[in-house]
Design a binder for these strands. Structure first.
Lengths: 351, 351
DNA sequence: TTGTAAGCGTTATCAT
DNA sequence: ATGATAACGCTTACAA
């Protein structure tokens, strides 16, 4: 005797009705089409028999899989798990399931992953990987796949997105440093092909001007990627070109860690000789040595909003594209302090 | 005109053959049943038309979804992403896709997630969540679902599993500390309902005896969970009961972080006044303050092996259950040092 | 070697 | 309000 799965037919037989009636009775949207008494009986027998509808079969008929795809660069990057948890929480409420694919920041792998998700007939995708002007978006459009971007966006606003106000975040960091008395503030920028890299950079430039930093072109070095090594390289270039810098605004926490390394290599103590700020407030940023002053972004909330937006677009493909910008918040820890020499104010510290 | 998806029928028409022939030509396992020339023609037209087989429809017929479910406690716990990457790498090779569910260490949520995965007709599951004697396993058996455990195991060995040699790992830590000259070594144990908690504890006890630690019952405090807070509480209890302790072996890195906190609270500098070791070597453990001496486990390899084991069991449900134990390795960093006072050897350091 | 036809479990459409 | 029927896209005996 081998495993026999219980189908809608079994329930129909047992309840003395037709399969289509069972389908209606069990389908929230159509329960109204069936008499209360029958609906109750069907529900009861389904329960008793331990019937679980087969979403695969249903999906074949309805062309909806109740599944959405998520593209992220790398799940091992601590920035993403909280976003994913947010997405999943919102999806679960609606009975949807997520399939996650890692792209390792590789356009080819991203393309590949997208095709695989499309082949699986996902109802929509959330992309955390896009660069500015990313071919992935055209591909989604061609596939008729609803899309929402999260964290990063493209140039054109023809796609819904949930983002951080990167300009404002960078400004937060700059103002904090300025308030501590820093005047020579540099920036280790993220890749400029990514919206976060570009946004934080322009936020830095604007804020620096606003707080009346030193004149001349802003001291900036662009990192090749959002990694520790890349951050160290950029910091090296920055400090070589601008030795008088007393503070660095890094475009994310990993780059900040790279700045730690380079500072140490040069015998510069942080924060005594140089202040460093990060961006994202990734998990364990408070455990670094020194604890990292950084700009906290609303990771989980971004995920939740992105999922909601996507579900809305799946529900109604003609719904207007929205772009939500979440405000970041400064978290002051131990990696920033007054510059050596005369200073004006005393900073508060928090954990 | 609305979106029209290309089906096997379209390819058949275009290639001048029957749909079943297309199916055979495109199915690696049955390509042999079709003449080379036809196979080539079919492949070409499929390519040209941009045909992608619908795995949902195929799955309906074959009762296989080419999907496997993964239950983990929490993806935000840095221990798991590397395991997941390993799993996914191995699955991708075989054309399988993973669906990940977080349980938050909650048996009810775990049960729920399992049912949802089963409803999705996953071909098998990998469980990273099991406690010793977990009802989830019976449920899987009842569902006829192939299972592989990863990282944690249950009591009985009726299930395949990929684990770390936890006893050996704990012994590594104890011997390292003993070599540094520590004699009063305590243990902040993980939850004893989890195999990792139990295994590391017994490894600690055995190794302590082997290195000739102080007589009397071993100084151990059990943490309620694998979290920082829980670690701090346990450390507090441990130090209160055994004030002369000069070193703590924590059952994982998060617990070690809790020990850091408690030590600091008591004005104990690590490693000067107290040495602390972790377990897992989670990402960024080298960035903690101080950098954590810990027992590194083969996270990615565990994932790869688990996936392989599962695929084998799916392939052949009667294949023997295997239990693979991977050997951990000690990573010496800055959280361990000779105890104050006379000592015997000088430790090496690595990053 | 290839075609025929049935069927996987569900839901949508059309009758009644 | 419910039943009958076809269809979703694919695979697989079985027939030719």
């Amino acid at each position: 005797m081998r495993k026999k799965r219980i189908t809608i037919e079994d329930v129909a037989l047992e309840a003395g009705v037709h399969a289509s009636t069972v389908s209606r009775a069990l389908n929230p949207g159509k329960r109204a089409l069936v008499s209360d008494v029958v609906a109750a009986r069907v529900a009861a027998t389904a329960q008793r028999l331990g019937y679980t509808p087969d979403p695969v079969a249903a999906g074949l008929r309805t062309r909806r899989s109740a599944t959405i795809g998520i593209l992220i660069p790398d799940i091992a990057n601590p920035l993403f798990p909280p976003i994913l948890r947010g997405i999943e929480a919102a999806l679960a409420e609606a009975g949807y399931t997520a399939i996650i694919a890692n792209t390792d920041n590789d356009a080819l792998r991203a393309r590949d992953a997208l095709e695989r998700l499309a082949a699986r007939r996902v109802d929509g995708v959330i992309l955390a990987t896009v660069s500015r002007r990313d071919p992935l978006l055209d591909r989604c459009r061609k596939l008729g796949l609803p899309v929402v971007l999260v964290n990063r966006s493209t140039g054109g606003g023809a796609t819904s997105a949930v983002l951080t106000d990167d300009e404002a975040g960078a400004a937060l960091a700059v103002r904090h440093l300025a308030l501590l008395g820093h005047r020579a503030i540099g920036h280790v920028a993220g890749p400029q092909r990514l919206s976060t890299g570009a946004g934080r950079r322009s936020g830095f430039v604007a804020a620096r001007r606003a707080v009346g930093g030193e004149s001349g072109p802003p001291p900036i070095a662009e990192a090749a990627s959002y990694g520790i090594e890349a951050g160290a390289h950029a910091a090296a270039a920055l400090l070589a070109a601008h030795p008088r810098i007393t503070a660095i605004v890094a475009a994310n926490d990993l780059l900040a860690l790279g700045c730690y390394d380079e500072a140490r290599r040069r015998g510069l103590a942080c924060p005594r000789d140089i202040s460093i700020t990060g961006f994202n407030d990734m998990p364990f940023a408070d455990r670094f040595d020194p604890p990292l002053t950084t700009v906290r972004i609303a990771q989980r909330a971004m995920g939740v909003e992105a999922a909601r937006l996507l579900l809305a677009e799946i529900e109604n493909p003609r719904s207007p594209k929205r772009e939500i910008k979440l405000q970041p918040e400064l978290v002051v820890r131990g990696s920033t302090a007054q510059p050596r020499g005369p200073s004006l104010t005393v900073p508060r510290r928090s954990r």
